[in-house]
Design a protein around this nucleic acid. Structure first.
Length: 119
DNA sequence: TTGCTGACCGACG
DNA sequence: CCGTCGGCCAGCA
């Protein structure tokens, strides 16, 4: 065992939370993008599921900025009430229609790409 | 302990 | 175009 990676810390959850917190204001990303950034492209589920974990503890995680690959607010039902997610996004200047983010490609924020770089 | 579920994604038919 | 299946990891009965 020599230095086994003890503790769950440093796992998906930690990484996911950290990345999500880095999401700039008025930007959005996808579960798959985060999962891929973490090195687990196929574990996109865990990303969304990770969002479900903190929501019972601390909601410092802007999960509303995380949507699926289609730009759809798939997890809006997990914000306590459907519509909250959309309001939060709209509050940031993001236009949404039919639970779908408009100009999703433009607002899309890739983890680790535009951390401090302004295009 | 096994087995199922889950805010996804991509592939296949 | 739409339905179905597999994969990935972690939590829970």
């Amino acid at each position: 065992m020599a230095g086994r990676v003890r503790m769950h810390s440093g796992s998906f959850f930690e990484n996911v939370f950290d990345v999500v917190r880095l999401i700039p204001h008025g930007r959005v990303t996808s579960y798959g993008a985060i999962a891929e950034y973490l090195g687990s492209r196929g574990s996109a589920r865990m990303v969304g599921w990770a969002m479900n974990a903190p929501h019972t503890q601390v909601t410092d995680i802007p999960a509303h900025r995380v949507v699926n690959r289609n730009g759809l607010l798939t997890g809006k039902h997990h914000f306590g009430s459907p519509g909250i997610m959309q309001q939060l996004l709209e509050s940031e200047g993001i236009n949404i229609e039919n639970d779908k983010i408009l100009d999703f490609e433009t607002l899309f924020w890739e983890p680790g790409k535009e951390l401090s770089i302004d295009k």
